[in-house]
Design a protein around this nucleic acid. Structure first.
Length: 431
RNA sequence: UCCGGAAUAGCUCAGCGGUAGAGCGGGUGGCUGUUAACCACUAGGCCGGGGGUUCGAAUCCCUCUUCCGGAGCCA
């Protein structure tokens, strides 16, 4: 008899096979016993009939509890009640370990309880589905970039100083070198990589010590930064749009079952795979003011503004040409107006907010140095960054994706804390 | 950090001045098609901590703690 995975069950109809997994659900009715078994690849109903199993084995099987681990041998057959599905006609049941009082029941639980039991919560079907979508989004991003001549270039997590100088960083003691900081973005390091590899990306955890307390923020989250030589502002946005639409198509193709478990509205996802909206920051401000927002020309968009902008749009919207004063020092000035920069945000529809921030970078040594001096940055600490503009500088652009926000949007997940195995938030570090 | 809300059985909640409740989960028994199964019985409580008001407080007041939602910051 062969060990098989539940996802491969259809290929083994009528054969005697072995499944190994965990009891998601168990119930019995006189001489019949039903076990919903999950093995990581899927879930299958196993049906045991007392006279076939033997009375003693049947009594033992009845003692299985929620989440007990078990080996079940039997024969896959078409499900008697659900067309197109299979069930296992059970021959033997061998408990591996009987779980005691599994804390997560089939009824509803509160978020605090579930987060305290995150190590167990990840077994439940919605969490399983979200984690599988996370996996799919991850590889879709990598595949798209690999196909477009980007090379993986991992940036460091321990850094000597703040990448962008704006947000609060986590600080650690670093031997005799003083303080080191957990990276909030690998972007500046990526800019060095393009001078060697042409196009590069990194993908890893980044850290923000902000006391953010919303459904869109984590203190530790995964970011994918991409950077490309000889790519200017418009092409940069084309790459971003191509990437996001590629991810949408992959998720729709590979995660139909997961999206169904999450009750994701897939029509909304399909509709987002169409040319993205584009407006300048100035146009966005005018539009918002016409709708009653109090936003002014020099301000960043608030959460309510983002929602107002996208609520009637089936596709994500690029906002570009931002006032330089509210964007990072390394962004290149717009040719038509030195007060604007060639930066873009990408706002997802359905209220998921900003999922990408990108820009063309300042490639002129003296202009960059002026900006850094204006921001009172230490030129010594960033000498290596300025060097890039001295030795073969080229026009270049890049962007960063908030990975969990993208996963939230794909899966239609209301809170970002469910899109990462172990969320880190201001008031939670366990488990 | 600011503005709201909440804390009662293992879990989710009701009770809102007068003997501590339900559903689920646990235990025992029943049932050949269940899938949040069903039926019967059963065990289970410092009503978040501290202080007040009152003849009497889970309930009203003050305070602390913890959590949730939102804002700001950002991805």
């Amino acid at each position: 008899m062969k060990n098989i995975f539940i996802s491969d069950i259809a290929a083994h109809e009528g054969e005697e096979i072995i499944l190994r997994g965990w009891v998601r659900h168990i119930r019995h009715s006189g001489k019949l016993l039903f076990i919903n078994l999950r093995d990581g690849t899927g879930e299958l109903q196993c049906v045991a009939f007392a006279p076939e199993l033997g009375e003693e084995a049947f009594e033992t099987a009845k003692k299985l509890t929620l989440e007990s681990s078990v080996i079940i041998a039997g024969t896959p057959k078409p499900h008697q009640k659900q067309a197109g599905k299979f069930e296992l006609s059970v021959k033997t049941i061998t408990p591996i370990q009987i779980a005691q009082d599994y804390p997560i029941g089939k009824k509803e639980h509160g978020p605090d309880f579930l987060l305290s039991n995150r190590h167990l919560w990840i077994r439940s079907s919605k969490q399983w589905a979200i984690l599988r979508i996370r996996h799919t989004v991850y590889y879709a991003i990598c595949d798209y970039l690999n196909e477009n001549h980007f090379f993986r270039f991992d940036s460091p997590i321990l850094t000597p100083n703040a990448c962008e100088g704006t947000t609060t960083l986590f600080e650690v003691d670093y031997f005799d070198e003083g303080k080191a900081y957990l990276s909030q973005s690998g972007q500046l390091y990526l800019e060095t990589g393009i001078m060697s590899l042409g196009r590069v990306y990194d993908f890893g955890p980044v850290f923000r010590a902000e006391r953010s307390k919303t459904r869109k923020h984590l203190t530790e989250f995964w970011m994918m930064d991409a950077e490309a030589a000889f790519v200017e502002h418009d092409e940069n946005m084309q790459i971003q749009e191509g990437l996001i639409r590629y991810v949408i198509r992959r998720v729709l193709k590979d995660c139909a079952a997961e999206l169904a478990i999450l009750e994701r509205n897939v029509e909304n996802l399909k509709a987002a795979d169409a040319p993205f909206g584009r407006m300048s920051h100035r146009e966005a401000v005018e539009f918002l003011r016409s709708k009653g927002s109090e936003i002014d020309n020099g301000s960043d968009l608030g959460a309510a503004d983002e929602l107002m902008l996208t609520q009637d749009s089936p596709v994500p919207i690029f906002i570009d040409r931002w006032p330089k004063d509210i964007k990072a020092f390394y962004m290149k000035r717009a040719p038509e107006d030195p007060n604007l920069v060639l930066g873009n945000d990408l706002i997802a529809p359905e209220g998921y907010g900003e999922i990408i921030g990108g820009s063309q970078r300042e490639d002129d040594h003296d202009l960059l140095q002026q900006r850094m001096e204006a921001e009172k940055m230490s030129l010594d600490e960033y000498q290596w960054f300025l060097d890039l503009r001295k030795y073969g500088s080229v026009p270049h652009s890049g962007f960063g994706i908030g990975f969990e926000r993208l996963v939230s949007w794909m899966g239609g997940v209301a809170h970002i804390r469910e899109t990462i195995p172990f969320p880190r938030m201001i008031y939670r570090i366990y488990p």
